[in-house]
Nucleic acid binder design. Sequence first.
RNA 1: GCCGGAGUAGCUCAGCUGGCAGAGCGAUUCCUUCGUAAGGAAUAGGCCGGGGGUUCAAAUCCCCCCUCCGGCUCCA
Length: 641
Amino acid sequence: MSDVTVTLPDGSELSVPEESSVEDVAYEIGPGLGSDTVAGVVDGDLVDKAEEVADGDRLVIVTEGSDEYLQVLRHSAAHVFAQALQRRHPEAELTIGPPTDEGFYYDVAGVDLDESDLDEIEAEMAEIIEADYDIERVERSWETAFDIYADNEYKQEILETEAADEETVSFYVQDDWQDLCRGPHVDSTGDIGAVKLLNVSSSYWRGDEENDTLTRVHGTAFESEDDLDEFIERREEAKERDHRKIGTEMDLFSVPDHSPGCVHFHPDGMAIRRELEEYIREKNDELGYDEVWTPELNKAELWKPTGHYDTFTESGEMFNWEQDDTEYGLKPMNCANHAHVYDSDTHSYRDLPIRLSEFGTCYRNEQSGELSGLFRVRGFTQDDGHAFIHPEQIKEEIRGTLGVVRDIYGDFGFDISYKLETRGDDAVGSEEIWANATDALKAALESEGLEYDIEAGEAAFYGPKIGIDAHDAIGREWTVGTVQLDFNIPRRLDLTYVGEDNEEHHPVMVHRALLGTFERFMGIMIEHFKGNFPTWLAPEQVRILPISEDQLGYAHRIKNELDGFRVEVDDRDWTIGRKIRAGHDDRVPYMLVVGGDEAEAGTVSVRDRFEDEADDVDPERFRDHLATEVESRTLDPDFVD
RNA sequence: GCCGGAGUAGCUCAGCUGGCAGAGCGAUUCCUUCGUAAGGAAUAGGCCGGGGGUUCAAAUCCCCCCUCCGGCUCCA
């Protein structure tokens, strides 16, 4: 009998008899590992421990301590849900129920569920877990499986597609219930420590809107109740940070019913946006951009040669209409306008790079169901910019931009990661052009020593893209800035510069946005800071709290001394305790308490949002500190340390 | 756009088995002049998302539309 050889995570190789299972290999390594084995990862795929290994497989044994264990456990929790559901609603048809990053879901058909049904299903799940049924993998013939699902077209479709070539398929059986499933699963239902059903929503069969609508129940599972509690706390935390809630509380913006997807910035929200704009102007200056402004309203023909018109009208995303026998539209991107600014004059290779920036307001008709607060809108303003360069300048241009991007996200306290998005189905231009552009972006990333993930097929239609993901205070990732390289639009618009050879050449366009859009970035910041903006961004930087009416005059004198900062005097007829409470609720970084003592001594009492206090402070010293703190864009108020 | 849920005072929400539209916070006024996370009282504030219908009577029941929320699909 011949052997097969598998490679273990430490790089060592192990020869085992043919037809050995993952579990057999584990026993071969050691009896302890063997008995602890839950599943395996073969060449990156999670498989059942009964799966046979093949020659050359890279194998990882999954035990309770493995990262993959939670995934296995959640998959089993999905089964427990499905069993519980069918105990209560025997008519329910099962489709698929995979684990996800956050837990699991199961898509079901033939049953009406709403959130109020979840409690009883959860109780049924608890009983199944309590009963600690063994979970057994059973191989059945394809035909038997097909008969079992005589009344379930979805499972039949799975058998006819994914398992079409299989003689036998695996079922997982617990108690009197079974499900067609590849696994792997935990050994028994009792291994699932804690489960919770989260919500009921809907989905399409196989994610296609042409298909049947299914009911999707989301849930999660953990090894212990403590882990579940922690998860629920994190969810509560995310809810507390919701920018829509905080935006309303702080009166930063609104998206009224008459303007779906179009944000109204209120004075305090606009104060933040102005700071952001000034900040980005500084960065654009640093990068050598010249600011322009171009119109939102143009004839549709503007976007035809660039390819925007086709791309955006096909997806229904472009706002356009007939007016006086002419088709007009609102710009979905700024590139075409900037290209025309470039093209309004002739350029020598000596002039390049020519860099144009704009806080450009664009409109896209996002599907109504997609709209969400500041994150998904129809009208948005990009901190956009286009650099027109010649090919030798690509690497330096991209590197310079990435360097500034890194500075920017550091200033906000975000960690960032990079992804390289490559040619998609809607791409214009030749494969060769794309390959060159993609290689150039790779080279720039690599020369900066930056790690990146490749997202195949995700690029914009005109060129490959470096996407910048910001990681916020509670570990979520958001795509913010982008740097894209474009050889296509300059050709399509016949943009030129005169080279050293006195011939005309097409420039290369770098499209880039540093924050992405002000709307989305503001939303991300609100959630990241939980509304507690750094002093330089805070709409109200300092609030002066007079102890009694007698100090109102003094309070206003202090306010005048802080001219140039955003300062308010709380002149309400309230006790000092209540004013402090309100100051904290309103997330003001600094409160200056002024009573009789301070007025007499010419000082202030400083209290920051961390409840740190300093008495007998010289107002001038506070002002100087405030100026430094704002100037250096310090993240947390640090006058009192 | 699709599926499900929701829309009542500036905000958070109760009322919805049809019968005078409510509470807390906030706002205004008065009392209090107060020392580091909510002092007291009074008053104002509503097209019950919009339109149509059923009914003696609709916030409440029915239909259509709008908007939001959770998902799907899509994306900066």
